[in-house]
Computed example of a mutant assay.
Amino acid sequence: MLTDLNIEDPRWDDLGLDDLARAASVATLERLGLEPSVFEIAILACDDARIATLNADFRGKPAATNVLSWPSDERAAGIDGETPLPPDPADPELGDIAIAYETCAKEAAEAGKPMADHVTHLIVHGTLHLLGYDHERDGDATLMEGLETEILGKMGLPDPY
């Protein structure tokens, strides 16, 4: 399972991102009843400049953000608040996640959270996006945030909201 981790910014090295990403994605997949060993996620650990470029290229928003995700397939539910379609185990690639060091560090400091806890939350969040969860509609946001809180709680981390 998991991850093809590409660390572009060496500041990520001291955080143990590989272990954090693996734990977060495994916990997310297991909570959803999916076998983690079947699926793959690619993660790019970059800086704000790189994620701003990606955000501009893919979302038309030329600014840094904490995390971006690119699902390999459209899995979103058609009805607000419903569970997305499960991934096909015959197609193990779930998609890609990019995470930006400076934005994550700033957000963690502003919230008074350990960086590792915040990054774990963002990997759970990104993994849920790869699985079709979103927060654009109210019911979808409630479902996604509830799952995040539950998954992180089982990992021993506080409610991020």
Rank of each mutant, 00 (worst) to 15 (best):
T3N: 09
T3M: 13
E8Q: 09
P10A: 15
G16N: 09
A21P: 08
A21R: 05
R22A: 12
R22V: 15
R22M: 06
S25T: 12
T28A: 03
E30W: 11
L34I: 03
F39P: 00
I41K: 09
A42H: 14
A42S: 15
L44G: 02
A52R: 01
T53I: 04
D57I: 13
F58M: 11
K61A: 11
A64F: 05
L68E: 01
S69G: 14
D73R: 06
R75P: 02
G78W: 11
P87V: 10
D91M: 14
D91H: 13
D91S: 10
I99P: 07
A100K: 01
Y101D: 05
T103C: 09
E107D: 15
A109H: 08
A111V: 02
G112Q: 11
G112L: 06
G112E: 11
K113V: 13
P114S: 14
P114G: 13
M115H: 14
D117T: 10
D117N: 13
H118D: 10
V119R: 01
T120G: 01
T120C: 02
H121Q: 12
I123D: 01
H125P: 03
H125T: 11
G126I: 13
L128Y: 00
L128T: 00
H129L: 06
L131V: 12
G132N: 02
Y133V: 08
D134H: 04
H135C: 12
D140K: 07
M144C: 05
P160C: 03
